[in-house]
Amino acid sequence: MAAQTTELSVNPGPIMGLMAGHWQVRMLLAAVEHGVFTELAGRSATSAELAGDLGLVPLGANDLLVGLSHLGLLELRDGKFTNSAVADRFLVQGRAEYIGGYLRFCERELNPAWDGLATALRTGEPQNRAAVDGNPYDTLYQDADATDGFLDSMDLLNTPVALAMSRFDWSRYSSFVDIGGARGNFAHQVVTQNPHLKGAVFDLPPLEPAFKRHMDRLGGANSTVAFHGGDFFTDRLPEADVLVFGHVLHNWGVADRVRLLTSAYEAVRPGGAVFVYDPMAGGDEPSMHAVLAGLAMLVWSHGGAEYSVRQLHGWLAEAGFRPETAEVAGLHDDVLVIGHKDR
């Protein structure tokens, strides 16, 4: 009897639940594409009213809206839908914390690469065409509106890291360059909290207009944060006391990581350092977060993967640095490792 109970308790529900999760993501992305949450900002409406306002077919719109209410993104009262608190904060276009740009990046760039996961597991090759041809970010940054939307979301997600790093003791240093620093969100936060520092960003030249727009919006840091355009695989890195690699190394293979750290050693002034922060979850028992991040790198980049603190210490030593793992409150899923360049 016990064996029968055990057998009956095993069913395909968990497997079907995974498939349903994929369909739920499609619902969210469709709602963002059609501006459902933006249309409901500050108002309530029936499904028929929303369908008319957004040009959707009534039957499908009703199912979508009811489904979004089950997901906690909408609330349904007396036949009318309103945004939930989380949707109102993060899914209304034009608001400071809008993450629709990142969701569109997933829809247009990252998710199609994930569709090739089975192939990537067999071949080891990225499924992102741009990564096969060269740098996966080259095509991403070709459209100004898409770039701003993506970077809005990235800045929202990396601001806690930037705030944590701004509280680090920078007193022994006078300058830093954020390598792959996009439009300068990290650099702005650090300089604002440490006004003795001269900060800079080094990234691909197409990002300079986005950097200037962002600095204009933030105000105050324009004179102390500079932009240097270039490709860190082909151009010399700017000289400074500190070079920062934040969420950069995991995008590339081991040989490229060592190559970047060696270039950094040449650019760091004597007595300076390289700062590297990443999840560094590539241990023996990685979390689901690390697994997903690693597989995302597999399909998106050429050789990218998560890695461990121990591995990074080895690469830093190979490049000439003296490695140290630092304790920084507020980094959450990230770890900071410092490579010191002795005088």
Rank of each mutant, 00 (worst) to 15 (best):
L73G: 10
V36Q: 07
L65E: 04
L64F: 09
L65K: 03
V86I: 15
S44K: 13
R89H: 13
N83K: 06
N83V: 04
L76F: 06
L74Q: 09
R77I: 01
G79A: 07
Q93T: 05
L76T: 01
S47E: 07
G42E: 06
G42N: 06
L56E: 11
A85F: 03
V92S: 10
R77W: 00
G79C: 04
V32G: 02
S84T: 08
N62I: 00
T38Y: 09
E39V: 00
E33S: 12
R77H: 13
A30Q: 13
L50V: 02
A30F: 14
V66G: 03
A96Q: 13
S47P: 05
T38Q: 06
A51L: 07
H34V: 13
G35N: 08
A61D: 09
L91H: 10
V92Q: 12
E75Y: 01
L40T: 04
L56F: 04
L76A: 11
H70R: 14
T46P: 04
V57Q: 13
P58H: 03
Q93I: 01
G67H: 09
G35L: 05
N83E: 07
P58W: 06
N83F: 08
L76G: 03
A87Q: 08
L91R: 11
T46D: 12
E97A: 13
A85S: 13
V86E: 11
F81W: 02
D78L: 01
L74Y: 09
L73K: 04
G35M: 06
E39K: 08
G55W: 03
F81L: 01
G72P: 10
G72M: 10
A48I: 08
D88A: 15
